[in-house]
Simulated assay, not measured.
Amino acid sequence: MGEIRIGTSGWLYPPWRGAFYPEGLVQRRELAYLAEQFDTVEINGSFYALQKPASYQKWAGQTPDDFVFAVKGSRFITHMKRLRDGDTLLSNFLASGVLALGPKLGPFLWQLPPNFGFDPAVLADFFGRLPRSTAEAAKIAAQHDDRVDPAYLTPDADRPLRHALEIRHPSFDTPEFPALLREFGIALVIADTAGKYPALEEITTDFTYIRLHGHEELYVSGYTDEGLDMWAGKIRDWAQHGDVYAYFDNDAKVMAPRDARALKDRLAR
C-alpha cells in the first residue's frame, strides 16, 4: 500500500482569507496553517518565474518534517521552448533553489499547453534529459547561466526524483503515449478538467499524480459527495500500486481546501 497525500495547488489566494484561513492570520503564516491541515502542496510560482533559494528554504522551514512539495516546472521549458533546446533553462530551473527543499522535495509537475500534440521524439528527448536523483539534478544545475544568482547546487543527500506529465491535447489518447511514459518512468497526470481536456487514467510508473481542476466548471466548481466518494475509491485502488499525490486546483471559489479536507477525511475512514 503506497502513501496517499492530499493537498491543494498553491496556497496564496486572497479569497481564502477569512474563508479557509482564519480571520487575522498574517500572510506569512498561511503556508504553516495549510501544512497543519494537509501533508502536501503544489508550488505554482515556479511555473511563472524562477524562484530564489531563500524562498524554497523559507517554505521548507514553515512546514512539518514529513511535508512534501510538488514543484511545477517552468513554462519557459514547456510552453515557450515546447521541450526543445531547453538545456540551459532546465539547468536554471534546477539551480533556482528546488534542491533547498531537501527531503521535502516531491514530484516535479510538467504541464504541456493545450496546443502541444503528441510527439514521441520530442517527449523521449525531454524525458531523457530529466534528472532521476538529486545528485543528477545538481550536475545539471551546475550548467546554469547568469540569470540564476544566487544558485543552489548542493543537495543535502542523494535522493531519487519523480516526474509527472500533464497533457491537454486529444492526440495523446493513443496507446503509444502511456507506453512511452512507462519506458521512461514518468507518471501520467490524471486530470479532471470539466471535460475540456482528455481524461486519461493510466498508471505508468510507481506513483500516481492527480489534479482535480473542477468537474463541472474548470477551476471553479466544487465536488459533490458522490464525486468525492468516487475519487476516494479510485485513489484507494491506485495506492495498491504505489504512492498517490492528489491536488485540488478548483480555487476560484475557495473550493480547493474544502474539497481537499473532505477527500482526506474519506480516505482516513
Rank of each mutant, 00 (worst) to 15 (best):
M1E: 05
E3G: 00
I4L: 00
T8D: 04
G10V: 00
W11F: 13
P14T: 08
P15G: 13
W16I: 05
R17K: 10
A19N: 14
F20V: 07
Y21M: 05
E23Q: 09
G24P: 00
R28I: 00
R29Y: 04
R29C: 09
E30C: 07
L31D: 07
A32E: 13
A32K: 03
Y33M: 02
D39V: 05
F47N: 05
Y48C: 03
Q51W: 10
P53V: 09
P53K: 04
S55W: 15
Y56L: 04
Q57K: 05
K58P: 02
W59S: 10
P64G: 05
D65L: 08
F67S: 02
K72D: 12
F76A: 15
T78F: 11
R84W: 10
G86C: 15
L89C: 09
L90V: 08
S91I: 01
G97S: 15
L101P: 07
P103D: 14
K104E: 14
L105Q: 02
P107H: 11
L112W: 06
G117T: 00
G117M: 02
F118I: 07
A121G: 04
A121E: 15
V122S: 12
V122R: 13
D125G: 12
F126Y: 15
S133I: 04
A135W: 14
A137L: 14
A137W: 13
K139E: 12
I140Y: 08
A141S: 09
A142Y: 13
D145F: 01
D146A: 15
V148D: 09
P150Y: 01
A151I: 07
L153R: 06
T154D: 15
P155W: 01
A157D: 05
R159F: 03
R162W: 11
R162D: 09
H163K: 11
F177Y: 15
A179T: 03
F184N: 13
I186C: 01
A187M: 09
A194F: 02
A199H: 14
E202N: 09
T204K: 04
T204G: 11
T204L: 03
D206Y: 04
D206R: 08
D206T: 05
F207L: 06
Y209V: 01
R211H: 14
H215A: 14
H215G: 13
E216Q: 10
S221K: 03
G227P: 06
L228Q: 05
L228P: 04
W231C: 05
I235Q: 06
A239H: 12
Y245E: 02
Y247K: 06
D249W: 12
A252K: 14
D259K: 03
D259A: 06
R261P: 09
K264H: 11
D265F: 15
D265C: 12
R269S: 09
R269D: 12
